[in-house]
Design a protein around this nucleic acid. Structure first.
Length: 216
DNA sequence: ACCCAGGGTCATA
DNA sequence: TATGACCATGGG
């Protein structure tokens, strides 16, 4: 007998508690974080965002106007800083061209996703982070943790395409933004803080080796 | 000293 | 369409 997608959620929620997630004070800060955290530890992203705040540069118009090297220097701690400088500026150009966050907030969810995916440096996960956490729309974010955990549990094979997996989770859960927010947050929380079994296993909670959480 | 993190783009076959 | 190189810092 194997776990279901719903059981995994109940399990994580029970032991980690409600997350009400994404670190960031404003929607714009959340969007910036979504880009900077690509393949990068969040602790490094925090330093970069702190640099932007100290320099009073945490807004689209300022970021677009900044010389590449100046912005890159602030983004340095988040890694890939030259590429992320280009990506962040491309994103801010797009945001301004749309008419700002308020204008984007008028889009239908799918239209918002499609528009974001056109932006340089924004792929499916980053787009969904923004759609879900900055605009509170119901999309299920698929990340590396999600693939690892659910493939270990035998619920997915792991090599499915992004859209296929997103569709599977969304059609199973039929949830609202609040649920998808909690679920993804719990998955990341588990991957980050709990498992120390080697080789790095991000689903040990659901195996016999894990003593952190008892099985249902 | 090594491993890898809350990905995405681009070149190649 | 599918794989691989590349991007780069900081913490364990």
């Amino acid at each position: 007998m194997s776990y279901t997608i719903r059981q995994v959620y109940q399990h994580l929620l029970k032991h980690h508690g409600s997350q009400d997630w994404w670190p960031g004070d404003t929607p714009f800060e959340i969007m910036v974080g979504a880009i900077l955290t690509q393949n990068t530890a969040w602790s490094n992203v925090e330093k970069a965002i702190a640099n932007l705040k100290v320099a009073d540069c945490l807004d689209a118009a300022t970021i677009v106007a900044l010389p590449h090297d100046d912005l890159a220097e602030m983004l340095r701690p988040s890694g890939y800083f030259n590429i992320k400088t280009r990506r962040l500026q491309a994103f801010c150009e797009w945001l301004l061209a749309q008419g700002g966050e308020q204008a984007v907030a008028e889009y239908d969810t799918e239209a918002m996703r499609d528009a974001l995916l056109e932006v340089y440096g924004v792929g499916p996960e980053t787009a969904d982070d923004i759609v879900l956490y900055a605009f509170h729309r119901p999309v299920f974010v698929i990340d590396a943790y999600t693939r690892r955990i659910f493939s270990r549990l035998g619920i997915i094979s792991g090599d499915e395409g992004y859209e296929e997996l997103r569709g599977r989770f969304e059609s199973t859960l039929k949830g609202k933004a609040k649920l998808y927010n909690e679920y993804h947050a719990l998955i990341v929380m588990h991957g980050k803080d709990v498992c120390r079994v080697k080789p790095r296993c991000h689903a040990c909670v659901f195996t016999d080796k894990c003593s952190y959480i008892s099985k249902p």
